[in-house]
Computed example of a mutant assay.
Amino acid sequence: MIKAAKKLSSQSASFIAPVLFLFTLSTACGTSNPSSSDVKVTNGVAISENVFPSAVLLMLETPEGQGLCTGTFVNDSQVVTAGHCVEGLSAKNPSVFYSTKINGELTPLAQAVSFKRNPRYSIELGVNPNDVAVINFPAGTAPATTPIASQTPRVGTEFTIVGYGNNANYNNASGLLEGSGAGVKRQGRNTLEAIDNNMLSFVGLTGKETKSTYAKGELVASGEGDSGGPMFVAGKLVGVTSGGGLVKADDGVTDIAISFYVDLNNAVNKAFLATVINE
């Protein structure tokens, strides 16, 4: 098992950032080719849309460009995702689209009608335990649903995460965080390592490793584009991706990925969700 050289804490590392994926302003949703990557995938397994069908791709038109997030339908019309995914969007008639790939191109299936974000969250807070929002779509939009769990998982619990984000995150020659492979639905397993400041956290592979003793789909981590993506335990939604980054392993050389998920059952989030789900 690889371990981080420091305690997992969303408050102690400057590299932590929300993991929303932004295309450039000139890149259209259907013209990007996010699956073209020669990076060996060791932290996620590509899956079809009918696997974990409640987990869906969200395309967003933001002031900075077109964005990509992941979300989960918890009933026939409402998606739970990260609060930072809706930053800069109008709460009424927002430019958020539940999308899928048709003939290899990302295609909108339904546009959101409104959303509500936890009022305790602000984008200035970055990775934060209240980074959650509920996006409303027309009734009957959901391809499938997953209920929200009624309690926080314990440290040591095995979980599955699903997302459309990068399959690799790594530091380039300039020391800047890069990634590749966004737009493909992937799943993988890991084990909850810590609960700190109401955040669910764990470490995993970066996806850049050329050799690994871990099977594909094991020791996964989140990447850009996984924002708002689900953490599933026993068929229920326990958390959504807020952010992550890279830290050094115990050897002081190897990069490993660290991920932070919002606990949907912390008191503030639970109260917020109770007021907006099925509203």
Rank of each mutant, 00 (worst) to 15 (best):
M199P: 03
N128H: 15
K92M: 08
A274G: 13
T62P: 01
L22K: 12
V96G: 06
A28Q: 15
A267F: 04
A257P: 01
F272A: 07
D251N: 15
S32Q: 14
S26E: 14
E61S: 15
C29A: 14
L219R: 11
F260L: 05
G217C: 07
T152I: 06
K208C: 00
G163H: 11
A55Q: 09
T254A: 06
A221I: 03
T70V: 09
A215M: 11
C85I: 08
S242Q: 01
L177T: 11
K6E: 14
F137N: 01
E87W: 10
G207V: 04
S37F: 05
S9E: 03
T100I: 10
Y214N: 06
N190I: 12
P153T: 06
L246Y: 07
A257I: 00
K211F: 06
K7V: 14
P147G: 06
E105T: 15
T62N: 12
G67M: 09
S114K: 11
P230S: 08
R186Q: 02
F73C: 03
G235K: 08
S37M: 02
A17F: 03
S222H: 07
G207A: 09
S90R: 07
K236W: 00
G71M: 07
S36G: 02
G183Q: 08
E209P: 04
M199E: 11
A91D: 09
N43Y: 09
F21E: 14
G245I: 04
V262F: 03
T275S: 15
P138E: 11
M59N: 12
V113C: 00
S14P: 07
S35M: 06
G228K: 05
F159N: 03
G71S: 05
A133R: 03
E279F: 09
I258R: 09
Q11K: 15
T241G: 01
A139I: 02
Y98K: 00
I16C: 05
S174R: 12
G140H: 05
T146L: 09
L273I: 07
L264M: 08
N50Q: 10
K216I: 13
G243P: 11
A17N: 09
M231P: 01
Y261A: 01
G71P: 02
R154C: 00
G88N: 07
T42C: 07
L273H: 02
V51M: 00
E87A: 15
A82R: 13
S9G: 12
K116N: 13
D131T: 04
D226K: 14
V268E: 15
L205F: 07
E61M: 13
G30L: 06
L57H: 00
M231Y: 02
A110M: 10
R117L: 04
V262A: 06
L237K: 03
L200C: 05
L58G: 01
I256N: 02
L246M: 11
P94A: 01
L205Y: 08
K208E: 08
S201D: 05
V39R: 13
D131C: 07
G165N: 14
A215H: 10
T213E: 13
Y121P: 12
Q11N: 11
S174A: 14
S259M: 03
I47G: 00
G71K: 08
S99T: 07
T62Y: 04
E105R: 14
L20M: 15
F159G: 06
S180Q: 12
G67K: 10
F260S: 10
V276I: 11
G217Y: 03
N198W: 03
P18R: 08
A149T: 04
L20P: 00
V155K: 04
I123W: 11
S201P: 00
D251S: 08
I258K: 02
S242L: 05
